[in-house]
């Protein structure tokens, strides 16, 4: 045994990618994660903008109601979500996983983004109004570019949450193994061998699964830190 292997077997990665179906799982994970990420960023930033930067009756009760749902564990909602998805014919489809992932990632993201947006001086909205912005232009041209740090934070949290999700993709892909995501595929791969797990392929698959997360974290790290720091200052 050695921490650093004496010989690197790069062939295991190719084998995991093709024979172990990790290529398909990777593609599924990527489609779900990227779609969920974009949808979460788009919808939550707009909601947070409305809550933090516009004035409408019931704004606070809406935020409090959203935050209250954080106390309900995801496991408790799995069965009702499954039933609703079944009724909407969303089971056994990537679209179904995307829709449920987006819905599940809303509240924390809205809370983080709105807390950050409250720290942006209100004079900027006034200046934008006088410059000629309508509501959407104010969101798009002025507030959204200034929210980059917190959007990066939300992007990383959403990416990691969706990429590593196990229960939801498992429940939604029972009947169609070709739609499995990487975590589901990894566990299925491990349990597929009753007595002798193919550890080299399993480890190669696991290594493949963490590459995008590390890459994203390295790319967005500076935003991640400042986003968390600032989002925590004011709420």
């Amino acid at each position: 045994m050695a921490l650093v292997p004496e010989v690197f077997h790069w062939g295991n990665y190719l084998e995991a990618w093709t024979k172990g179906n990790f290529g398909t799982y990777f593609k599924n994970s990527l489609i779900i994660t990227v779609a969920a990420l974009l949808l979460v960023l788009w919808t939550t930033s707009m909601t947070a903008f409305a809550v933090a930067r516009t004035d409408f009756p019931g704004r606070r009760p809406i935020l409090y109601a959203l935050v209250t749902t954080l106390f309900i564990p995801a496991e408790a909602t799995l069965v009702p979500v499954f039933h609703i998805a079944k009724g909407l014919h969303l089971l056994n489809s990537l679209a179904g996983i995307i829709v449920v992932s987006v819905a599940g990632g809303q509240v924390v993201s809205i809370y983080l983004i709105q807390a950050y947006l409250r720290t942006i001086p209100p004079d900027l909205d006034d200046a934008a109004k006088i410059d000629g912005c309508n509501l959407f232009q104010r969101y798009w041209y002025v507030i959204l570019p200034l929210a980059k740090p917190v959007l990066a934070t939300v992007a990383i949290l959403t990416f990691m949450g969706t990429w590593n999700a196990y229960m939801l993709p498992l429940a939604f892909t029972m009947a169609r193994p070709e739609l499995r995501t990487l975590p589901v595929g990894l566990v299925a791969f491990q349990s597929g061998f009753a007595f002798s797990v193919n550890w080299p392929l399993l480890c190669a698959g696991a290594a493949i699964s963490i590459v995008p997360v590390i890459a994203l974290y390295v790319f967005l790290q500076r935003y991640f830190v400042s986003g968390i720091a600032t989002a925590g200052l004011k709420g």
């Binding site: 001086p121 004079d123 900027l124 006034d126 200046a127 109004k129 006088i130 912005c133 309508n134």
Partner: peptide
Amino acid sequence: PKDRDIAMVFQNYA
């Protein structure tokens, strides 16, 4: 505001 044909300078520059 955008249709009032005014311009404003703010204390915090904005």
